[in-house]
Amino acid sequence: MLEIRGLTAEIDGKPILNGIDLVVPTGEVHAIMGPNGSGKSTLSYVLAGRDGYQVTGGEVRLDGVDLLALAPEERASAGLFLAFQYPVELPGVGNANFLRTALNATRRARGESELDAVQFLKLARAALRDLAMADDMLKRNVNVGFSGGEKKRNEVLQMAILKPKFAILDETDSGLDIDALKIVANGVNALRRPEFSALVITHYQRLLDYIVPDRVHVLAGGRILRSGGPELARALEESGYAGLGLEALGESVS
């Protein structure tokens, strides 16, 4: 279970998150929607522990563990995963090598045994099969020369292999055509199970047709302004943020 209470954060002294309260029970998928500048990406970076984002108050717990006290790599070992909006290229670093290094680092941190190359390959191939992805994904360098869709699929592949307890998908749908969107959504859905939960951050309702959330939250001005079921996302799509009377706050931070 992820619990966020009274979370405030700023960048260069400028407040971006102004008191977020959010609970995602284990096994559920929640969506966060909001206009540009509402603090969606900041929330995902703060949860993952990126430098340059100062937390000024509140707390974040994953299954009781105080995430804010941990370094980014420790949060990963604790079971947190961030699928990046803009996945980063690592020239010369093979995807398989990267993933095995990452998997073994988190396994080591949890006191589990490391996987050798053969064991890893078996696991990775199974994940590729589940996601209907080609084997050459492992041979290529991390995100180098990948199309937008391939980068996002690679994020989902990493997630499938690292098997986090809690995943944040930061605008994973941005820049995807409808076919790529379906592949990515199927990949996420394949991971849904009682011990997995996720926060899907998106600009559009579209993704939520494929990854149907248990709850939808509307973020604006660095606060959760409204929460509801999947129907809230559809209402937003039809009437826009303004239609829901959220315009003023949405604009105040943009």
């Binding site: 790599e73 990963a76 961030l82 996945p87 690592l90 990452a102």
Partner: peptide, 13 residues
Amino acid sequence: DDQLFYCRSRGLS
């Protein structure tokens, strides 16, 4: 920095 953060977010020191 974004390369380092990307790796660390995957569990690498």
